[in-house]
């Protein structure tokens, strides 16, 4: 199955610039500033197909529109799930939404994690902060097709114990005998008995075969930079490292140029890139 097949024809979109109204089914608090919206499409839901790593443009009526990665399960696509960090006017307005409220959705847009190309290989997922949200669909896909992959490693870093996203799911995944899931926090006071330190510290002792590894990385750009370096130091090839980039996306279809990244548009060519394809521009500060 190809990524194209994974992302079947989207349910509602005929005009990519026209939002479709979805209804809020639930709002779940994840951390003090992060929440998850479950959305049902018109006609009581129905399929909303997407590929892991893609994003939607979400529109808070009268406030504005923001790009948000899809963080739900691509295998069971109803409802549509977005985990959002309240950091600006639009996302704070979304935080106040209640069950039954309406929200505009355009999408899905963008490239996807290479979950099909990784079949038969070790998969190492390294993520930090809310970067776990765009990677969760890829992890769901891998779990649903566990026999297609060799070793599966998830390394997750959060700011503090209270900032850990999807805590219950992480506990469940850690309990699986054929997954390696490690969580670390940057700062710890009190009763946390887990790892303390940056997420890159987990890489040297993670169990994977570098020559047969596909690595998926999402987090703040500085974190991704050091993660890439540590993965390369362990012997993972650049062509097998994938990152999800973030820029100021507006139109989501490559027209407006707000998210231009060198010769590429994050919204259209990304957000997921093979590192070897963007290596030359990844370190350019002006971009």
């Amino acid at each position: 199955m190809s990524i194209t097949e994974l992302a079947k024809e989207p349910m509602v979109l005929t005009d990519p610039m026209l939002p479709t109204w979805f209804r809020v089914q639930s709002v779940r608090r994840e951390t003090h500033d992060t929440f998850t919206l479950e959305l049902a499409g018109p006609n009581d839901g129905g399929e909303f197909s997407f590929a892991p790593g893609q994003f939607n443009m979400l529109y808070a009526f009268g406030v504005g529109e923001v790009p948000i990665s899809i963080s739900g399960n691509p295998v069971t696509t109803d409802p549509l799930v977005h985990t959002i960090r309240a950091v600006g006017a639009v996302t704070r307005a979304m935080q106040k939404l209640k069950r039954g409220d309406l929200i505009g959705v355009r999408g899905p847009f963008g490239s996807a994690w290479p979950v099909m190309d990784a079949v038969g290989r070790d998969v190492v997922i390294v993520t930090g902060g809310i970067g776990l949200a765009p990677l969760r669909p890829a992890f769901y896909h891998i779990l649903a097709h566990r026999n297609d992959y060799n070793r599966v490693v998830l390394l997750y870093g959060a700011r503090t114990r209270d900032d850990i996203l999807y805590r219950d799911e992480l506990k469940q995944w850690r309990g699986e005998l054929d997954l390696e899931v490690e969580v670390t926090v940057d700062s710890s006071v009190g009763r946390w008995r887990g790892n303390v330190g940056v997420v890159t510290k987990l890489i040297p002792r993670a169990g994977f075969d570098p020559e047969n590894t596909t690595a998926l990385i999402c987090g703040p750009e500085v974190m991704m930079r050091f993660t890439i370096q540590d993965l390369l130091n362990r012997g993972v090839e650049k062509k097998n490292v994938y990152v999800s980039m973030e820029r100021n996306m507006k139109c989501a279809v490559g027209f407006c140029g707000h998210c231009q990244f060198g010769s590429k548009f994050i919204c259209r060519d990304g957000p997921v890139f093979r590192f070897s394809d963007i290596e030359d521009i990844f370190g350019i500060r002006e971009l």
Binding site: V87, V198, K201, V222, M223
Partner: peptide, 13 residues
């Protein structure tokens, strides 16, 4: 190096 990265407080917005 790890301590420097912690000082950056990467996940804070």
């Amino acid at each position: 190096q790890a301590t420097r990265m912690q000082l950056l407080d990467l996940y804070h917005v």
